[in-house]
Amino acid sequence: MRYLKLGSRNIDEFLGRISNYGDLYAPQKISEKFYDYRKVEDISQVEFNYNRTITPAKKYFIPPKHEMFEFDMETGEYTETMGDVKPFVLFGLHACSIVALRILDGVYLNEYPDKYYAARRKAGIIIGISCLPDEYCFCNLRRTDFVDIGFDLFLHELPDGYLIRVGSERGHEIVDENMDIFEEVSNDDIENFKKFEKKRHEMFKYEGSFDNLRYILELTENSPLWDEESEKCLGCGNCTMTCPTCRCYDVQDLPDIDGKHGKRIRFWDSCQFRSHGLVAGGHNFRETKKDRFINRYVCKNAYFYPLGTSYCVGCGNCTYFCPAGIDFLKNLIKIRDVVGEVAHGEQ
């Protein structure tokens, strides 16, 4: 891997330069409590230290609502509508968010590649940034706390700038075209990088791995925990909307007012909604709130074989944004019964 350094004095210049490659989107503070990816109009608004955004980066690749086709009800023709997909730069993704995009790649670019997703993925430059965990983060248990591929550039915080990893051909090109703002990595930088990694590692609340969780989940389907916890659930779907790997969608044909034309649109759906498993005739494959509640735990903890991780990347969003205070991680630990688990600071 190619490593470079970006000194503090060149950070604003760096943001300016990358915005030449397309519209720049980055995390910004949008309210007292929340951050979100927004289009950068003013570089000083870009937030380098944030824990999580209110909407995940998936929205740039699977928009919450978009048009797939226009149709003509008289001729029965559907015409593809790709929409305006232009180059963009997505700055400030954490490691878990990048793994999440790779999981989406595995699904959306499978043997039946989704053209809408593929076009947006191709148009987007991904620039990652290092982070420090808060009490909701457990990417280390998911083994998604570090990424080797899936980004063009990745910035690791140093006391006086960033250590940059180059992760793609496009990353190399960006670096080559802007060599005047980068420096060689010094021994001090390497020491500082190691210190940051150590500090970061020690900040995680739990150690270990959740790899065996999927078996235990299967074996504890009758645990009373599911009744207790699903009872609290409001069925609002916040957990899935804020999840970086939840990717369910619904499709509807919406006729125009003239009754002759219309649009086929797709929009985010959630397995927490009653309509998700409902079929014509009234049968529901996930009839009760408990069915839907368990479904999310099962789906998120299932193994995504192409990547060798679970579908859950341990970002903590579902817990952080749950209005009912349902703690995903705590429930998983309860289910697993914490044998041999060492919580930092508890020994």
Binding site: R214, C248, Y249, G277, V279
Partner: peptide, 23 residues
């Protein structure tokens, strides 16, 4: 088996079934 399906190509998620070892 049958399920609710929207896409038919393994994306929309409505037909996901099974358990965490066999999703």
């Amino acid at each position: 088996l049958e399920r609710r399906m929207k896409c038919g190509v393994g994306k929309c998620g409505h037909c996901i079934a099974g358990s965490s070892t066999f999703l």
